[in-house]
């Protein structure tokens, strides 16, 4: 985005004016701070086994604040490490899918004609391919739970929709007179894409990205359910919640802590995405 793009201060202001989005931003800030700094406050290590404290419910004071799991690992520290990993994974995966999607969609939309037709047909075909199966093949092939494979899998799934959105936006932009004006000025195609088209579709794309991140987190949890996500002893929100769900009746705290963090995170991200979309809507004031 070019330096100091115009809608930015105003869009952020409009975003901040919305109570829902403001709360979401604040809670998100707290969650990120917790993920980064939170484990310092606890004496426990995420993978340390405490044989004297197996499957203990939460206790205050010097104990395990969110309880322990069946191996005696501290759930407070593990939840925050899981949050950290889930955040990082989903952010990078969203970033990857955005980059591919923006490049693919804007080139297809700007080139138009036959190139556009072929590029979008590729997207259509990939859409009809069960992406789950690709991810499973990838993850089960290389090494189960390899973070790289997870990233490629998650990012590779997300870019299709981004490419469609970006292409539709580019097509709409391409017909606008300021793009014709740029051509009349003598700019080359590449310059027009980078200087005029991409900055103008960043708003929509950002709002969409805020909605992709929660999908990535959910998808990772889904992979954890299949045993293909982040592997023990590493913690992700997905495998913690899945582990907790299996102990729902006997040890509800194992589910409650991680699930609460997961729900709070997803609620805030969704709310933020909606808020961003509304704030960028030119008809809103």
């Amino acid at each position: 985005m070019p330096e100091g793009s115009p809608d930015r201060p105003r869009a952020w202001q409009r975003l901040w004016r919305r109570a829902g989005a403001r709360t979401a931003l604040l809670v998100l800030g707290i969650l990120v701070a917790l993920a980064v700094l939170g484990p310092w406050f606890s004496p426990w290590q995420p993978q340390a086994l405490d044989w004297s404290q197996l499957a203990q419910p939460p206790q205050l004071g010097h104990g395990h604040w969110l309880g322990t799991d069946r191996l005696g690992r501290d759930l407070y520290v593990r939840t925050l490490y899981g949050l950290r990993l889930s955040l990082a994974l989903s952010l990078i995966a969203s970033g990857v899918s955005l980059l591919i999607g923006i490049a693919w969609g804007s080139i297809a939309g700007f080139a138009g004609g036959r190139i556009d037709g072929w590029m979008m047909r590729v997207v259509d075909v990939l859409y009809a391919l069960p992406y789950l199966f690709i991810v499973i093949i990838l993850t089960s092939l290389v090494a189960r739970g390899s973070l790289w494979v997870l990233l490629v899998g998650l990012g590779g799934v997300g870019w299709l929709t981004t490419a469609r959105i970006v292409r539709a936006q580019t097509l709409a932009l391409r017909g606008r007179e300021f793009i014709v004006a740029a051509r009349a000025t003598g700019l080359a195609g590449g310059q027009i894409i980078t200087r005029h088209i991409v900055p103008n579709l960043m708003g929509t794309v950002l709002a969409y990205a805020a909605l992709t991140i929660p999908q990535m987190i959910l998808f990772e949890s889904f992979l954890s359910f299949l045993g293909l996500g982040v592997q023990e002893p590493h913690a992700s929100l997905g495998n913690l919640v899945y582990g907790g769900a299996q102990e729902m009746e006997s040890a509800p705290w194992m589910l409650l802590g991680p699930a609460a963090v997961l729900v709070a995170l997803l609620l805030c991200l969704n709310r933020l995405g909606d808020g961003l979309r509304d704030a960028l809507d030119p008809r809103e004031y």
Binding site: P2, S5, P6, D7, R176, E177, F178, V180, A181, A182, A184, T185, G186, L187, A188, H196, P199, N200
Partner: peptide, 26 residues
């Protein structure tokens, strides 16, 4: 193409919709 782009300097145009023809982010 390159020569045509250079030639565009002499051939300019103004459009119907003043706001639509200006990049909103510049």
């Amino acid at each position: 193409r390159a020569r045509l782009r250079a030639q565009r300097r002499d051939l300019q145009i103004i459009f119907q919709d003043p706001l639509g023809s200006l990049d909103p982010r510049m």
